[in-house]
Amino acid sequence: MTDIVTPESADGASEAQGRCGLIAIVGRPNVGKSTLLNALIGAKVSIVSRKAQTTRHRIHGVLTRPGEQFVFVDTPGFQRKHGGTMNRMMNRVVTQALSDVDVVVMVVQAGKWTPADAELLPLLPKGPRHILAVNKTDLLKDRNALFPFVQKIAEQHAFDAVVPVSAEKHRQLDPLMAEIAQGLPQGEPMFEEDALTDRSVRFITTELIREKIFRLVGDELPYSCTVVIEQWEELPNQTRIAACVFVERESHRPILLGKGGEHMKRIATEARQDIAKLLDQPTHLEVYVKVRKGWSDSQSALRELGYDAT
Results as ranks from 00 to 15, higher is better:
152 K>W: 00
162 V>D: 03
105 V>I: 13
86 M>H: 01
93 V>A: 14
39 A>S: 15
66 P>Y: 03
123 L>H: 14
13 A>L: 08
23 I>E: 03
19 R>Q: 11
77 G>N: 08
296 S>W: 00
185 P>Q: 06
181 A>P: 05
194 D>K: 13
75 T>Q: 11
204 I>F: 14
92 R>E: 04
299 Q>N: 07
252 H>M: 06
26 V>L: 05
129 R>D: 05
244 C>Y: 05
273 Q>A: 13
204 I>T: 12
80 R>K: 15
190 M>K: 06
4 I>Y: 02
299 Q>H: 05
35 T>G: 05
237 N>K: 15
125 P>N: 12
36 L>D: 03
99 S>P: 03
243 A>V: 07
161 A>K: 00
106 M>C: 06
166 S>F: 04
260 G>Y: 09
244 C>P: 01
298 S>H: 01
277 K>S: 14
298 S>A: 01
34 S>E: 04
126 K>S: 15
183 G>L: 08
202 R>V: 05
258 G>K: 12
158 A>I: 00
42 G>A: 05
193 E>F: 14
99 S>A: 15
192 E>M: 07
173 L>Q: 07
231 Q>V: 01
102 D>H: 13
282 P>Y: 09
201 V>M: 14
160 D>G: 08
266 R>P: 00
96 Q>C: 02
93 V>N: 05
13 A>I: 03
79 Q>M: 13
150 V>P: 00
162 V>R: 01
64 T>L: 04
125 P>H: 10
272 R>C: 08
303 R>Q: 06
216 L>A: 02
13 A>V: 08
59 I>F: 09
142 D>E: 15
175 P>Y: 02
45 V>I: 11
275 I>H: 07
223 Y>D: 02
292 R>L: 10
30 N>E: 05
132 L>T: 11
213 I>V: 15
157 H>W: 08
116 A>P: 04
15 E>V: 13
22 L>K: 10
205 T>Q: 01
45 V>F: 03
282 P>K: 10
5 V>M: 10
54 T>M: 08
308 D>R: 02
175 P>W: 08
150 V>D: 00
132 L>F: 09
307 Y>N: 00
50 R>H: 13
66 P>Q: 03
27 G>W: 08
8 E>A: 14
141 K>V: 11
138 D>Q: 12
163 V>G: 02
148 P>I: 09
24 A>E: 05
81 K>H: 14
185 P>S: 04
270 E>C: 03
207 E>V: 10
92 R>G: 01
299 Q>T: 10
9 S>R: 14
267 I>S: 12
174 D>A: 14
261 G>C: 11
281 Q>K: 15
106 M>V: 05
7 P>V: 12
86 M>S: 01
147 F>A: 13
113 W>D: 12
278 L>C: 09
217 V>D: 07
275 I>E: 08
104 V>H: 04
296 S>N: 12
93 V>S: 10
58 R>P: 00
102 D>Y: 02
284 H>M: 11
255 I>D: 09
182 Q>G: 14
76 P>H: 01
202 R>I: 01
251 S>G: 12
286 E>F: 15
141 K>L: 14
8 E>M: 04
72 F>Y: 15
266 R>G: 00
206 T>I: 03
153 I>K: 02
293 K>A: 13
186 Q>L: 07
59 I>H: 08
41 I>S: 01
22 L>R: 13
87 N>K: 05
